[in-house]
Computed example of a mutant assay.
Amino acid sequence: MKLQKASAAAAGALVLALTVTACGGDSNDDSSSGSGGGKITIGIKTDQPGIGLQLPDGSYAGFDVDVATYVAKELGYDAKNIVWKKAPSAERENLIANGDVKFVAASYTINDERKKKVDFAGPYLLAHQDLLVRADDTSITKVEDLNSKKLCSVTGSTSAQNVKDKLAPKADLLERGGYSECLTGLENKAVDALTTDDSILAGFAAQKDLQGKFKLVGLKLSDEPYGIGLKKGDTELKTKINDALKKMVSDGSWEKAVQANFGPAGYKNEPAPQIAD
């Protein structure tokens, strides 16, 4: 920003305006206040039904949204004071490190590589890689059945490559730009199965216009413990979020959120995982 020619007064006014209107920075994300009067910016997925989805009216829904809303309330923020920020998988660490969000709840699997860059609260859900097939398909009951069948996933998916490389090398892997394209192909019998985390598959299959059309095979091809990502070294916030997650489980809100977002797909979820201290 070029301010060399601006007067000192104008520059001061600009700085004041930016301070007042900014949202998502640490100055407004004061989780220690507990007053509910400030704003908190939270990173979520916005294109995953059942997990995190921006609805046509601009609101957001999904299991991660429910979890994040509950946690924010325990930190002292009303739902109306949450600023939701899109957190694509490749940007989650940057959003946290730059202070653009207070925390991220976005189907964020905890692993050693990510723990080098961010801290995690949780886990709050244990997902597994699975397959989604048509409801009337009885030919796919195990991963080896994918040999000589068409398997769909998004471009660059490690889940699909895992199946192709290690589990069903003769599968015909088709990569598409988004899961919705795979679902259309699955419905039209252009492909035989779709693979990714079972929670994501259940979220898509639970959509009203798709209920009853698909089913999860029920395989556990990997463990995907979802955690809430936050800035490295923020032990105070991590403890507060873990306490909130434990309360969500103990008061029944966690199970209610699971059933509301995944239940229509017949998702057989794991019990709430043990939350780290």
Score class of each variant (00 low, 15 high):
8 A>K: 15
9 A>P: 05
10 A>F: 08
14 L>E: 09
17 A>Y: 14
17 A>N: 12
18 L>Q: 12
19 T>Q: 14
24 G>K: 12
29 D>F: 06
33 S>W: 14
40 I>D: 09
42 I>A: 02
50 G>S: 01
60 Y>S: 01
61 A>R: 15
64 D>C: 08
65 V>F: 03
67 V>M: 12
70 Y>V: 11
82 I>G: 06
92 R>P: 02
95 L>T: 00
97 A>I: 06
101 V>L: 00
113 E>G: 01
113 E>P: 00
117 K>H: 06
122 G>Q: 00
123 P>T: 01
128 H>K: 08
130 D>G: 04
137 D>C: 15
140 I>L: 14
143 V>I: 13
147 N>V: 04
153 S>F: 02
154 V>G: 05
170 K>I: 08
175 E>K: 08
178 G>D: 15
187 E>D: 15
188 N>D: 15
190 A>L: 15
194 L>Q: 10
195 T>L: 03
196 T>Q: 06
197 D>A: 01
204 F>C: 02
210 L>N: 12
215 K>H: 09
216 L>W: 08
218 G>S: 11
227 G>S: 03
229 G>D: 02
233 G>D: 03
236 E>M: 08
244 A>F: 11
245 L>A: 04
249 V>K: 11
255 E>S: 15
258 V>D: 03
264 P>K: 14
266 G>D: 02
268 K>W: 09
272 A>D: 05
